[in-house]
């Protein structure tokens, strides 16, 4: 197994567990979530932080959660793969496509309450073959629900390229079998995603049913931090790095006479919205708090 050794011990670092970074997938998050409101629901899979940021999740408390602190969004019990921020309608499940049924449920709730809320379920292209996704497409279509399924196609299901495990190549064609609108944005362009998502979210919000939207993104980094990517050619890694949607957007903006200074100012605004490690709360105590063994149930009491 030479060469498969991770770059570091993922059980020993400051961030516990296998962290999945989302660099290269920003367009899918921003392009879609820009159309959403706080009360719209988003469910996300294990590679989720770009989506969480785009949906408006509390960054300080998310950071604290990533570090496993009790000040985190989930009191350190959920971790970076299971982020919940109900103030902005964000929930995540690490199990492939199992966020789709809950998104369908949020859409069903909106329909029952006659509200114009929309639900968005994000999955990766590696999950196109999972039952929960296919069941959810049918359920959403037959009940005409306000939900958008967003497939982030980064070409890789850990080590397996899409064309080796999934047919058809264009995942949005899954929609055809469910009498649903399907669409695919085939390049890493946040503006193109924004336009396609505008159609899809608008369709849902207007009560005209669900959409399946596949968005081509790319995986700039490894599957999880420390993954040596022995399965992936250097050429592929280099090609992916050339597809940065942030650079593409910068080019587009320059074409509109936005100067480097303004672009730098925009870039600086991002990091400042999160206060960083010092503000995320104290490091974990050696002895976990009493809350470790509680709250499998709600803190509220049953209705009488």
């Amino acid at each position: 197994m030479e060469g498969k050794t991770p770059g570091f011990d993922i059980g020993a670092g400051q961030i516990p567990g296998e962290l999945h970074l989302a660099a290269g997938q920003e367009a899918a998050a921003v392009g879609v979530c820009h159309h959403l409101r706080d009360y719209d629901t988003v469910t996300a899979p294990h590679r989720l932080h770009h989506i969480a940021i785009a949906k408006g999740v509390d960054l300080n408390r998310m950071t604290a959660e990533i570090f496993g602190r009790e000040t985190g969004l989930c009191s350190g019990k959920g971790g970076h793969m299971h982020i919940f921020d109900m103030d902005v309608g964000f929930a995540a499940s690490e199990i492939m496509t199992e966020g789709c049924p809950p998104a369908v449920g949020a859409a069903l709730t909106a329909k029952k309450r006659n509200e114009d809320n929309v639900a968005v379920a994000y999955i990766g292209e590696g999950a196109l073959d999972q039952g929960a996704f296919l069941e959810s497409l049918n359920f959403a279509s037959v009940h005409d629900l306000p939900v958008v399924f967003v497939v982030e196609d980064n070409d890789w299901a850990i080590s397996m390229p899409k064309d080796r495990i999934t047919a058809p190549r264009d995942g949005s064609k899954r929609a055809d079998g469910f009498d649903m609108t399907g669409d695919r944005v085939d390049h890493d362009d946040v503006v193109a995603v924004y336009e396609a998502a505008g159609e899809a979210v608008g369709r849902a919000r207007d009560g005209n049913g669900p959409t399946l939207l596949e968005v081509q993104v790319h995986r700039r980094m490894c599957h999880f931090m420390g993954d040596p990517q022995t399965y992936r050619s250097k050429g592929d890694q280099t090609a992916h790095r050339k597809r940065d949607s942030i650079e593409r957007l910068a080019e587009d903006l320059r074409a509109f006479d936005i100067g480097d200074e303004e672009l730098e100012a925009l870039r600086d605004r991002g990091p400042r919205s999160c206060q960083g490690g010092d503000r995320v709360g104290p490091k974990n105590n050696r002895s976990p708090s009493r809350r470790l063994l509680t709250r499998t149930c709600s803190p509220t009491h049953p209705r009488e």
Binding site: T41, T43, M86, A91, E98, C100, P101, P102, A103, V104, G105, A106, L108, T109, K112, G131, A132, E135, S136, N138, F139, V142
Partner: peptide, 26 residues
């Protein structure tokens, strides 16, 4: 039928939908 709902034979889909509807307060 809106409140007593026949569902597709998709236990994952409708049980998951119930989970989320419950989280939304239904």
């Amino acid at each position: 039928r809106d409140r007593i709902m026949d569902v597709p034979i998709s236990e994952t889909a409708y049980i998951g939908a119930a989970v989320s509807a419950a989280q939304e307060g239904m």
